Simulated assay, not measured.
Amino acid sequence: MDRRSLITNGSAAAFGAFALSAFTNGIGPAEAAEAYHEGHPWVPMPDPATTFVPSPPFPKGLTNEERRHLQTSDTADFDVFNHADWPRLAESHAPHIRVHWPDGHYTDGLEKHTEDMKALFAWAPDTSIHTHYIRVATNDLSAFAGVMQGTFTRPMPDGKGGFIKPTGKKYSINMVTIALWNKRGTMDEEFLYWDNLNFFRQIGIL
């Protein structure tokens, strides 16, 4: 599989459909279809941002490499990110990592990505990720959906030399990460997606 053509040549939609069909009990799309036709219809999940949805088991049939990718992603969020243990980002991110952000900009290098991670905690020190309610992997590509939460309790830099006064409001947003992995077991490239408009409204700055 050409991982970059999967994203750039219109196959991303098909991959998204694959992800959505595989979340329940770690089953793959073929098993999900078989279960449906045997009289076990698909049951939609609630909004994970408002109703906790636990992380399911890893999908069946993963290679050792694919399983390591998902395990590394779990560790990166639940241990490294949640505890702001920034030196450990190198366990999951390559030194040259390119990170694509929801607003369309991207950054290069682990040092810059670490600065950006620290910036999230500067104004919401209780920021954390609690679940990966969808997680899939194929070859050197993985994806998961999770929930990021926090509280706007400290001044937020406005990018113009000033600060936005904290509102004390909590946020809980669904997020998606798509990762491209190298043979060393770290990410070469990471794509982050969430609804910024919803995010800003929840923390009270829109």
Rank of each mutant, 00 (worst) to 15 (best):
T63L: 10
R3M: 13
D74Y: 05
A19E: 08
A35N: 14
G146C: 08
D74T: 10
M1G: 08
T177N: 15
H83A: 14
A19L: 15
G162W: 13
L20T: 04
G39Y: 11
A119I: 10
N174F: 01
I27G: 00
T50F: 08
H113W: 12
K160A: 11
M187Y: 00
L206I: 08
T8Q: 14
L141G: 04
E91H: 02
I173L: 15
D158L: 08
D195K: 03
T50M: 01
T186L: 05
Q202I: 02
M148Y: 05
R4M: 14
T131W: 09
T72I: 07
N198W: 08
F23T: 09
A124E: 02
D108C: 12
D47K: 05
I203F: 01
A124V: 08
E38T: 12
G159W: 06
R88A: 09
G109M: 03
D108L: 10
S142G: 05
P102F: 09
N139C: 03
D2K: 06
H130Q: 02
A90T: 11
L20R: 06
M117N: 06
A19R: 02
G104I: 12
R3K: 12
T114I: 06
N9V: 01
M117A: 08
H113Q: 09
Q149F: 05
A122D: 12
S11I: 00
F152G: 01
K118H: 06
I27A: 02
S5C: 09
M175W: 08
D108A: 09
